[in-house]
Simulated assay, not measured.
Amino acid sequence: MELQIDKLERQEKYKLLIGCVIPRPIAWITSLGADGLLNAAPFSYFNVASIEPMMVSIAIMRKPGGQPKDTARNIAATNEFVVNMVDIHNVDAVNQTSADYPPDVSEVEALDLSTAPSTLVRVPRLQASRIHFECRLHQIVELGTPTTSDLVIGEVVHVHVADELYERGRIDARGFAPVSRLAGSTYATLGDLFDRTRPVYEPKMK
């Protein structure tokens, strides 16, 4: 099967990408509007972008008509956000915040989600998460002509990890029990773990 991109409709491209690029980690982002309204929304176009400086990236698709989503607009206005990591214990709450709430309604208030203050940014953290990345905006890259997605690159300035998940400088993956996105309405847990040692290149002797 070969698929010509210029022959595919938008929905076909969408289904192809989210069906092939799996599993995808989820960023449960809290952000503050210019009016102080606290927003929470999940995004699965999320990953590590850089180690030094420590950065993450989130692609936030725009609404029909090219309007930025609340999260992208808030980050552009305040230059701050928090990535609250998703696990098996909070995934139901995460899913609830994916509903299309009006801009003047806070998902956090509507769902009665508990928050905690951050250390270096003004945006609160969600207590339902056990790992948080406090971020400051590094750059927003507009993708598409006209723009259809805002690629947000944030510098991680502070991290919170629950004590039970941090051991000898590493995260306990099984204890973390992260949840990822697949296609459609399907999520996935960590599943089986296995190791593969990274090989060392050794040139053949002539």
Rank of each mutant, 00 (worst) to 15 (best):
K7D: 15
V56I: 15
A34D: 10
T186N: 06
G33D: 03
A128I: 11
T97C: 07
I5M: 14
I51L: 11
R168H: 15
K206D: 14
E2G: 02
P42Q: 06
T148R: 10
P53N: 09
E107P: 02
T189Q: 12
R170C: 14
R24V: 04
V200T: 15
L3M: 13
N84A: 03
V105P: 12
L17H: 01
P203T: 10
L38C: 11
Q11F: 01
L32Y: 00
I26S: 00
A77Y: 00
P117Q: 05
Y45D: 00
L151M: 14
K7P: 08
K69W: 03
V161M: 08
L143H: 10
S180E: 05
Q127H: 01
V156F: 01
R73G: 08
K63I: 09
S149W: 04
P117V: 10
E9S: 15
Y166A: 14
E12M: 09
E164I: 09
A177H: 02
E164C: 01
P64R: 14
M55E: 08
G154H: 01
L38Y: 11
T148D: 02
E202L: 12
V121L: 06
S50M: 03
L151Q: 07
A59I: 03
K13I: 15
H138Y: 06
H138M: 08
H160N: 03
E12Q: 15
P64Q: 13
N39H: 13
Y187W: 11
T119A: 13
I29D: 12
D6F: 09
G66A: 02
K206I: 08
S118V: 06
A173Q: 13
A128E: 04
Y101F: 15
P42D: 00
T97W: 10
G144P: 09
W28M: 12
A177K: 09
V56F: 02
L165I: 08
D100C: 10
A173H: 11
V82M: 05
G144S: 10
I26Q: 05
R122S: 13
L37Q: 02
Q127A: 09
P146W: 07
V121C: 03
M205N: 11
I88L: 02
G33Q: 05
E109P: 12
K206F: 12
I140W: 00
D172A: 10
Q4R: 15
S129I: 04
V94W: 01
K7H: 14
F43D: 06
V200C: 05
D112S: 14
P42F: 06
K7T: 15
H160A: 09
G66I: 04
Y187T: 08
N90H: 06
M85N: 04
Q127M: 13
R73Y: 03
Y166Q: 14
D172F: 02
Y14D: 12
I51Y: 12
A183E: 07
Q11L: 13
V157R: 03
R196P: 00
L113V: 07
T119D: 13
Q4L: 14
G184D: 08
E142M: 07
P25K: 13
F133W: 03
T197N: 06
I153H: 00
L165R: 09
D70A: 11
N90G: 04
D87P: 11
I29W: 10
